[in-house]
Design a protein around this nucleic acid. Structure first.
Ligand code: ZN
Ligand code: ZN
Ligand code: ZN
Ligand code: ZN
Lengths: 200, 200
DNA sequence: TTTTGAGTTGATATAATATAACATTCTCTC
DNA sequence: GAGAGAATGTTATATTATATCAACTCAAAA
């Protein structure tokens, strides 16, 4: 029951990405996805069509997406997809460092550091990032502040704690939202899309 | 269907704590609970018997407890309790700052800073704490490192972000667990109780 | 080419976490 | 004691996540 056009093709990439309606993303996103391709190839893991598709959906969103939101979007090109499909893919993307989980939202965002810069993070220490989460527009910004990391390393060391991983989630108002309610407390319209998930 | 003995009593405290099998905790814990009493009184909210009981259960645990673990324990003294009872109480305790939620564990711990020191945190700025979470024994330590907070404030300010709340969860090995597997990688027994929740 | 095995995905069921909505009881005030 | 507001009881359901086993894909070995 193949959906056609997946036989006897050739691609120059090491990590063939065939089958499954590719649902072509924007050029910008294809660039990022190709970068993800190369990163996976370098790690010896495969960015399959499904994984690429889901990563693409995440890149196409300006907000963190929950597993079931992702599932819903995936189903437009992939009817019959079920939760384990999404969760397995998310696990893969988390393990390869292509995405992050925002714990307090039970949602996921692409890793901007891994994909936006062309270098991979190999050889570097812990990829300890911080997330600025706007409680009004749900926009998330990933930071990687050395000062924060070193303060945490210092505190851990003082406590005799052997750090393996850290989660830093900062909730508040992004610049746009803070600006738009500067003098007053009312909600003017502003550039960011409104959240369709009630912030908790 | 009252379980008896809850009529016409008198207590000197402002925040009467009657009814419901008190399930007397240790002296140490009663001290902490009484402190919580005073804190609530000062805030004009009520630490009812149920809330006191649940906070006591949390204080009695050396590990974070999930809502359903708490429910299970509550039911020994409070048969028929249901999830909303626990979640509502947790909401109250979170709002009054008596406990914290560990997001990555979907679990809760008492706030050591609020209860261990006798001062309340009124007048102080944000109660921004950090949690060291041992992935082996599940023990959680609450820190309040000024250096971490100021690094975060600084980073937020630079990003034009108006911070309201921050979650910092540091996962790794506590001193005890790190020590016990120092040279080798095997799991010797050590002082902390083993986790009965598989760390994720 | 066929086989084979690891990795990936499909599919069904269910677990674990959390909330909605409304009824009842409690507490304080009048 | 009656009334109002807070707290709790109760039932049902929503949301998030995982377990399990079957089927398929792909790449390399035979
Ligand atoms: Zn990142
Ligand atoms: Zn915003
Ligand atoms: Zn605290
Ligand atoms: Zn430990």
């Amino acid at each position: 029951m193949g959906s056609g056009s997946n036989m006897s093709y050739h691609m120059s990439s090491m990590t063939k990405t065939p089958a499954l309606a590719p649902d072509r993303f924007s050029d910008r996103m294809e660039t990022l996805l190709n970068r993800a391709d190369r990163l996976c190839a370098a790690k010896g893991v495969r960015l399959t069509a499904l994984r690429r598709q889901i990563l693409g959906l995440m890149l196409a969103s300006d907000q963190p997406l929950g597993a079931y939101e992702l599932l819903e979007r995936l189903q437009t090109s992939h009817p019959g997809a079920a939760p384990p499909t999404v969760y397995r893919t998310l696990d893969f993307l988390l393990e390869t460092g292509l995405i992050h989980k925002i714990e307090r939202l039970s949602s996921f965002v692409p890793c901007t550091h891994t994909l936006d810069h062309d270098h991979s993070h190999e050889g570097e220490g812990i990829h300890a990032t911080q997330f600025l989460i706007c409680s009004q527009c749900s926009h998330v910004t990933e930071l990687e502040e050395p000062a924060i990391l070193s303060a945490i390393l210092e505190a851990s060391r003082n406590a005799g704690f052997r750090l393996r991983q850290s989660t830093i989630e900062i909730e508040g108002l992004c610049a746009a939202c803070a600006g738009s309610q500067a003098g007053a407390d009312k909600d003017h319209g502003h550039s960011h899309q409104e959240s369709r998930r009630t912030p908790r």
